[in-house]
Design a protein around this nucleic acid. Structure first.
Lengths: 119, 119
DNA sequence: GGTTGACCTGGAGCACACTCCAGGTGGAAG
DNA sequence: CTTCCACCTGGAGTGTGCTCCAGGTCAACC
């Protein structure tokens, strides 16, 4: 298996079909193949790219920045340094976000303990 | 010090003045005192409550659920069990979110390493 | 040959959480 | 006395990221 219908792709990627169409429309997906009747056909490469998009979205990257990354990715090897910088900056934001969640979670857990003592 | 102007409160809580007004309007803040000329005066208790709201927002709780929590908090001791359940459920979502971020961060870092090898 | 179901398009609509605006007030500093 | 600034109100507007809809196509199954 190496070709997937829109429905299968939605399933595997975790994006809805509408979102896949939207992503293609705004330029996050390019050159998605079509079959003879005009329907989209996704490849393993498309799936891998969607996996990357999934990763970036899950970690809170805004669409605009994903778009920038997509453009770079289409740009070939000269863009690798910039892609690297973009991902490194994002990684740091993710790290900070995890830190914030952890510390606020401690607050929540303290509150849970506090309530727990009352009952 | 135990009374704070809207500006000070915005500073200390990390919410904008507009957001403070908005939160009061929708019921996340209740009984905020006013001075003789109609301006809001926040107390240390208000600040502590805003700290809790900050915590819940930072960890991604939707406004609707914070509203529910606020109503419970206003309801007195009979609501403690329900507040506990709400916070526990939220804590689990936070835990899951941290897990997702960590695993997707690993993906990003792998990609960073991959790009790093190319340059 | 009809019906079904997955898909197509362009474009409108929606949920969320603010954020901004116009027009006004009240106390304080110069 | 005027100027300024922080604040007030009700309500409109914004950005983000989808999500839904009407109307249509096409291949497959009964």
């Amino acid at each position: 298996m190496s070709l997937y219908s829109p429905g299968e792709t939605a399933q595997k990627s975790g994006f809805s079909i509408d979102t896949l169409r939207y992503y293609e429309k705004i330029g996050l997906l390019s050159d998605i193949a079509r079959n003879s009747s005009g329907r989209r056909v996704f490849s393993d490469d498309d799936l891998a790219w969607l996996g990357m998009l999934r990763c970036l979205r899950d970690t809170g990257m805004p669409i605009a920045e994903m778009l920038r990354y997509s453009e770079l990715a289409r740009g070939g090897d000269e863009t690798i340094v910039e892609r690297l910088a973009l991902l490194r900056a994002h990684d740091q934001r993710v790290e900070a976000q995890i830190g914030l969640l952890r510390s606020q979670q401690a607050h929540i857990q303290w509150k849970i303990g506090y309530y727990g003592d009352q009952v």
